[in-house]
Design a protein around this nucleic acid. Structure first.
Length: 273
DNA sequence: GCATTACCCTGAAAGC
DNA sequence: TGCTTTCAGGGTAATG
């Protein structure tokens, strides 16, 4: 389940692998992802050169020359593989992008919750999916002074708020659970009930959890591996996620699991108030 | 307008 | 052992 640290890990690898390369051929499975991948997609990519690789939230944005943006979202089970030599396709391969030096970028996605699209705009911020994203937690605009009034206005549960990409871009289930644990805040708290010192703790915890995950090149359970097929190491540093019934590393009481908005939430009912 | 729920999908795990 | 059912969750449309 790629969240921001996993996408950032991919973006860094992708930058080294494909920047400056010219796209020669594209073949598609024809199966729809979250939205159908149109024939205009292949036409939009063919003959273009990769200028820059960017990331916003959980989206990869590959800027092609001139002013063409190739948008990728990995959904739940999407993976990108870079093949230095020939590659024809595997099970669940939905796109094979061949560069002029014969190397290949492969998009594979069993559950097909991902997204691939091409846009002709002046700036990435004009892409509809990007325009609606909230603040990136690792950029300067994300601080308690911005978050506190946002929380004051909301009556929903904190967990749901933090997962909302239109508010904060990049957090998913793993890092929300971990950040709330680190901040010592109960996931079912209503947003407007947070005190200023709790908002400060939350901001710091979100940043810390994400930075650590990027340092360890993402969290790998079953899904995430990087461009060359290497798993991340952050799963070794999780405190609550998927640890139901195991002792809390701080107090020793059992980690609990509840369901919020059809997603599992892991937390310690003693350490998180 | 906001909060909540249902839905898309397939592989893995659990249940029988 | 092998078949069937349940669960997982990204984003978003529909519903309350």
């Amino acid at each position: 389940m790629p969240e921001m640290p996993e996408v950032e890990t991919l973006a860094r690898k992708l930058r080294k692998a494909v920047t400056g390369k010219k796209i020669e051929r594209i073949s598609l499975s024809g199966l729809p992802l979250r939205k159908p991948v149109s024939s205009a997609f292949a036409a939009g990519l063919r003959g273009r050169t990769v200028h820059r690789v960017l990331r916003r939230g959980k989206y990869l944005i590959i800027e092609l020359e001139p002013r063409i943006f190739w948008l990728i979202h990995l959904g739940m089970s999407g993976r990108l593989f870079y093949h230095p030599g020939a590659f024809s396709g595997a099970k669940h391969t939905h796109a094979v992008i061949r560069f002029s030096d014969e190397s290949v970028l492969e998009y594979r996605d069993p559950r097909r919750f991902g997204l691939m699209a091409v846009y002709e705009v002046d700036r990435p911020g004009q892409i509809p999916e990007i325009r609606s994203l909230g603040k990136d937690p690792l950029r300067s605009g994300f601080h308690a002074g911005w978050l506190e009034p946002m929380l004051q206005k909301s009556r929903c549960e904190l967990k749901s708020f933090l997962l909302d990409q239109q508010k904060i871009a990049g957090l998913g289930n793993i890092y929300v659970c971990e950040a709330l644990y680190m901040a010592g805040i109960h996931p079912a708290r209503r947003c407007f009930t947070l005190r200023p010192e709790e908002v400060l703790r939350l901001v710091e915890a979100i940043r810390k959890v994400l930075r650590r995950a990027i340092r360890y090149r993402g969290t790998s359970f079953s899904d995430f591996i990087d461009l060359e097929g290497n798993p991340g190491k952050n799963q070794n540093y999780l405190n609550v996620f998927q640890r139901e019934g195991k002792p809390c590393v701080r107090c020793g009481k059992d980690v609990q699991r509840i369901r919020q908005g059809n997603r599992s939430t892991f937390f310690c009912s003693y350490c998180q108030k």
